[in-house]
Amino acid sequence: MAKITMTVNGRQVSGTCDDRTLLVHFIRENLGLTGTHVGCETSQCGACVIHMDGLSVKSCSILAVQAAGSSITTIEGLAKDGELHPVQAAFKAHHGLQCGFCTPGMVMTAVDMIARHGSNLDEATVRAELEGNICRCTGYHNIVKAILAAAGEMGGVRQAAE
């Protein structure tokens, strides 16, 4: 058993788990944050995507002990003061989801993508960057639309702030 500490959504948390426990199970079962989903558990579907030290990773393919000491952001950490994150708002506005199972991973992927590419994102890049996230409802069109809209809006916000 390992006793681990990490920062999750800005709060320091500790827990005890097997060395073999996957990060996604630690997040869901030890921390009770069930927004991060377990889809395929074979590193293909992307429903478990979270951010570790600012980069998107698949939490079903990382041990919780590997993440000890890191800073984690899950889908629960995006909305601030009851306001949806711009990417969450864009998914809602553009109907970027139907059943919603893939949505936490899609949104975390989109936030990471926009952080790396800024408002320069184009459709081809968005589609290429969605390689690791599978959606079986939407056919991706509205997900791509939502990400492009959010990238534009967030870029605009950043420019306005400068």
């Binding site: 992307g46 998107s56 990773v57 698949k58 393919s61 992927t109 993508m113 960057e129 390689e131 690791g132």
Partner: peptide
């Protein structure tokens, strides 16, 4: 290689 999340690790 892989996808963005795999490339981060």
């Amino acid at each position: 290689i892989g996808d963005p999340h795999v490339r981060h690790m």
